[in-house]
Design a protein around this nucleic acid. Structure first.
Lengths: 347, 347
DNA sequence: TTGTAGGCGTTATCAG
DNA sequence: CTGATAACGCCTACAA
C-alpha cells in the first residue's frame, strides 16, 4: 500500500537504516547520500508512518487535551476556542499533534484519559480546567505522567506544573476599581463553585472589600451557572435585597452579558443605576450594550504557555515543576460609572 | 515499563496470541481461559497499547478533525464547541478517539492533514467547514481517503459524503416569514463568501424574493465578516440607502447580535423599526435584547451524523456515498414584527 | 559513514 | 480451542 522506508532504501540503493538516519537528519550521514535518499523519498512521495515510528521510539509527538464535561455549560464558553488556538500554536511550533477526549460524565472523561495514557497515544496532557478533587489529576500524579493544568490546581499547587492567571489579584483589582469609583455596595456573581477559578475570584473580591473596610455581606455573593439563565436568577435575587448592590463583579463575561440584558429588561440602566464588570474579555464583551468592562486574562497565552511547558516536560524528563502566571488587565468600557444616588428599582 | 500482553500471557500460563484473542473477545476461546486471562489482566493492571495495535491492525480507531483557520473569526463561533460535542458523542459511542489539526494558514492546515493521512494517524476525517476550491478536499478525493464534510461541498456534491442543512431552503423559509409579516424591503447580510453556507443562504433569500415578485436590489446584499464589527459596517451601509430595509436576514447569529447592538446604539428600535433574523440559534440568541429570532440548524446533529457516517465509511470500505440533510426550524423570538410605517432614521 | 539484526507490542495466519 | 511464528514500519545498538 503505502511507500515505506524500504522502498526508499531500495530506490536509493542504501540500507533502510540509512534512510531512517536521513529522516532524523543524523549528522554522520554524508551529504551525498542524504541528497540521494531525499531524492528517492521525493520521487516516491514517501511520508513516514507515525504509528510505526511511535512504536519504535516510544514517543508519539502528540499531546492530549482534557476538556471539561461536554454537557457542562462552560464547554460553550468562547474560552475554549481561544485556549485551543494558543495550544495548537505552541504544539504546531514543535510539531506536536493534538489528541482529544471529551465526555459527558466525569467517568467518561476519566476513561478517556486512561485510554490516552495507558494506550500510549500521547506523550503528555493539558488539562483545560481545574476543579476541586479531580480524579484525573490524582491518577496522573500517581503514575507520574507528564501534564500541565490550565488554571490553578486545587491542591499540591507546588508540585504540579500549571499556567494560570492571578485570579485572586484580578478580582481584587477589579473590585478596587469599583471602590475607587465610589461604590460600596458591591456584589459578586460567581459560577460553578467546584472550579478553582471561581473560588479564587470570590476570595480576591472579599479581600478588596476587607481592605477597604467595607462590611462584608453574605447576601452579596451568589453563585450561579456560568451561562444563560444563570445570570438572570442571580440578578433577581440581588435586586430583591433590602439594600441592593450598586455594582456587580461577575466571574464570567457571558454571565455578565446575560445580566446586562436582564437589567435592561427590568428597566435598570447600566451603568447609571448599576455598574457591571466581567471576566475574560471575550469577543462579545465589546459588542454588548453597553460595551462591557472586563478583565482580559490573555486566554490565548494561557493555552500557549501551558503547551510550551508541557513539551519541555515531555522532552526533558527531569524538568522541574513550572508555575507560570499570565498577566491580566482591566479593559475599561462603558458598563461602569460612579454610583447613582437613587437606588435601582425593579420596574 | 508498561505491562504487555506477554506478561499477561505468562501469568495466565497461555500464549500471547491467546491473550490477544481474549482482548478481541474471540468466540473460539473457551470461557474458562477467558476468565483466567481476564483475571491476569486485572491483576497486572494491563491496558492494551494502542500504538502497537494500530501498527499491526492497520487501523487507529481515531478520526481526524479538520478545523478552519484558527485565525479566522469563524473559529470563535459557538458553532464549533457544539459540533464538537456531536462529533465526540458519536465517536465515543463507537470507541473512536479524536485527533486534531488546526493551523493559521491554509497551508499549515493542509500540511496537518497530510501528516494525519500519510502518517496513518487516523482512519478518516471530518471536515468542519466547506469552502470553495479547497485543496484539502481535492487531496482526500485523489487519495480516496475516507472523509465526510460538515456542510455542502462546493462541487462534486454527489460523490462526497456530507451532512448539511438545507440552507437554501432555510434562508428561503425565513425570508418568507418576513414577507408574510408584510416586509418588502428585506436585506441580506452574509459572511465570508468563500463559505458554501453563505452562498446557499443568499440564494435561498433571493429565491424567496423572486417568488414573491419583489424586485431584487443589489444594494440589499452585503457581505461582511461573520463576527464583530462586521455587523456594524453592514448596518451603516444599509441604513444610508435611499430606501433602507425594514427587515434583515443575517447569515449568522453573532453577526445578528452585533447588528442588534448597533441598531440600539443608533436609536433604532428592534423590532419596531426594523426586524432581524439570524441563523444557528446559538445560546446567546435567547439572551440578546430583544431575544433574537433565529433558524435553529441542529448543530449538534450535524457533528453527530457526520461522524456516524464517517465511521461507517471507515469500517465498510465499499459503503456508498451518503448525503444527509439535517432539519432546521425557525425559532421565533422577539426580533421580528410587522413593518413600521415610518422609515428607520439614523439618529 | 553505512549495513545488519533485533526489538517495540499487537494482530493474524497456520498448524496442531 | 490454542500455540508458534511472521508480519506491521521504523529505530538503534553493534558491526563493519
Amino acid at each position: 500500500m503505502g511507500v515505506t522506508i524500504k522502498d526508499v532504501a531500495k530506490l536509493a540503493k542504501v540500507a533502510p537504516s540509512t534512510v531512517s538516519r536521513v529522516i532524523a537528519n543524523n549528522p554522520r550521514i554524508s551529504e551525498k547520500t542524504k541528497q540521494k535518499v531525499r531524492a528517492a523519498m521525493e520521487q516516491l512521495g514517501y511520508h513516514p508512518n507515525f504509528i510505526a515510528r511511535s512504536l519504535a521510539s516510544q514517543s508519539t509527538q502528540a499531546i492530549g487535551l482534557v476538556m471539561p464535561s461536554s454537557t457542562d455549560v462552560v464547554f460553550q464558553n468562547p474560552f475554549f476556542p481561544t485556549v485551543l488556538r494558543g495550544i495548537s500554536e505552541a504544539a504546531h511550533e514543535r510539531q506536536y499533534a493534538l489528541h482529544m477526549t471529551t465526555g459527558k460524565t466525569e467517568e467518561e472523561i476519566y476513561d478517556g484519559v486512561i485510554q490516552m495514557v495507558q494506550g500510549r497515544r500521547v506523550d503528555g496532557l493539558v488539562l483545560l480546567y481545574s476543579k476541586v478533587e479531580d480524579p484525573v489529576l490524582n491518577y496522573l500524579q500517581d503514575r507520574d505522567f507528564p501534564f500541565v493544568v490550565v488554571g490553578k490546581p486545587f491542591k499540591h499547587e507546588e508540585t504540579i506544573s500549571h499556567v494560570d492567571n492571578d485570579n485572586f489579584r484580578a478580582a481584587k483589582d477589579v473590585t478596587n476599581y469599583l471602590l475607587q469609583l465610589g461604590h460600596e455596595q458591591i456584589a459578586f456573581v460567581g459560577g460553578n463553585v467546584n472550579l478553582v477559578v471561581t473560588v479564587d475570584r470570590v476570595l480576591g473580591y472579599e479581600k478588596a472589600l476587607r481592605e477597604a473596610k467595607i462590611p462584608f455581606r453574605n447576601e452579596y455573593i451568589v453563585h450561579e451557572k456560568f451561562l444563560k439563565e444563570g445570570g438572570q436568577e442571580a440578578v433577581r435575587e440581588l435586586l430583591l435585597l433590602d439594600k441592593p448592590p450598586t455594582a456587580l463583579v461577575v466571574a464570567d463575561d457571558l454571565m455578565a452579558i446575560g445580566i446586562l440584558n436582564t437589567l435592561t429588561e427590568l428597566g435598570i440602566q447600566v451603568p447609571e443605576d448599576i455598574s457591571v464588570v466581567g471576566f475574560n474579555n471575550v469577543l462579545l464583551a465589546e459588542m454588548s450594550r453597553p460595551p462591557l468592562t472586563s478583565v482580559d486574562i490573555n486566554i490565548f497565552d494561557l493555552g500557549y504557555h501551558a503547551t510550551k511547558t508541557l513539551i519541555q516536560l515531555v522532552e526533558n524528563p527531569n524538568e522541574p515543576v513550572k508555575r507560570m502566571i499570565v498577566s491580566h488587565r482591566i479593559i475599561k468600557r462603558s458598563s461602569c460609572s460612579i454610583p447613582s444616588l437613587k437606588r435601582p428599582i425593579m420596574s
